[in-house]
Design a protein around this nucleic acid. Structure first.
Ligand code: FES
Ligand code: FES
Lengths: 149, 149
DNA sequence: TATAATTAGTACTATAGAGGTCCTATTTTA
DNA sequence: TAAAATAGGACCTCTATAGTACTAATTATA
């Protein structure tokens, strides 16, 4: 399905929360309380985001997580890629494809192109956009056509 | 994952094939032979596309399927929607959502907006684009910025 | 140094959905 | 009437997701 996974969705919620207080460190318990996502799930997300370099972690007492970069530098595409791996709208968008049709498929190249178009769109939406703007404002933002060209 | 399903991918292959001979009728066996997709799978796809109104079917001897509209009128978004149902990048993009976080979720509105942006992008790619243009040409097509604004 | 707090890493289970196959009924042409 | 083709649905298998749990490693601080 053309959907991001629930974990990816949750991870944007977590990231958006962290972006509200960029300097502060938040532990998993805090984030659970604020986002209402179950603790083990939050924990799993935080580990994945850290491993991908989007978050910095600090162990031990008073440890926690914080954004590795400014919210304006982090894009939705970054978060999706961190949680779901290499982008690509179809199996066939990847080089190491397993699709049996590829030798005869007339449209494989087109899907690679479409994937990259979609990802470029997602790269133009930053975490900051998510935090600062409510839905309607984000809509207006894009209708202004500053981001998508 | 932010991927279309394999069946959806295959359905674009089938549609692209049918679009090459818009007036002709093709039966499932023909399409299997040309696309190398297994017959039962082709059959399943054709039924789904017919039910959604993208194809016309004709039963009986010398029956088959044909495009319901001109290739230029059919978009990638149409095909995805036909195969996968209502668009929306997250569970939470739908009204009848089941997400427990919604009451407190700070970003639900944003995802609805992002979904609609992505779908608007996909609505700008027609079946005809898939048929007429090879990958690199499609890329060039979009770099020309005629479609995405 | 001892203790408590906190992340890192890994492994597990259960569920839903995707992918694929097959069978039977219905319709149409010849 | 016979043959050709779609319509519809039942069915199974496999994979990926979501969620949980446990242990090890690390750090601050009393
Ligand atoms: S469907 Fe896999 S390469 Fe085209
Ligand atoms: S994560 Fe479901 S509503 Fe925001």
């Amino acid at each position: 399905m053309l959907k991001i996974s629930k974990l990816t969705d949750y991870s944007t919620v977590v990231m958006a929360y962290l972006a509200q207080f960029p300097e502060k460190m938040h532990n998993a318990k805090d984030i659970t309380a604020q986002t209402h996502i179950a603790l083990p799930t939050v924990s799993k997300i935080l580990k994945a985001l850290t491993k991908s370099g989007l978050l910095l972690s600090h162990r031990g007492a008073h440890g926690g997580y914080s954004l590795a970069n400014a919210a304006i530098k982090i894009t939705i595409a970054d978060i999706i890629t961190a949680m779901e791996g290499k982008p690509g709208l179809t199996e066939c968008s990847h080089n190491n494809t397993l699709c049996a049709l590829q030798p005869t498929c007339a449209i494989a190249g087109n899907w690679q192109t479409i994937s990259s178009i979609v990802y470029k769109t997602l790269e133009k939406i930053s975490l900051q956009d998510m935090v600062l703007l409510k839905g309607s404002h984000l809509q207006h933002h894009f209708n202004g056509e500053e981001h998508i060209k």
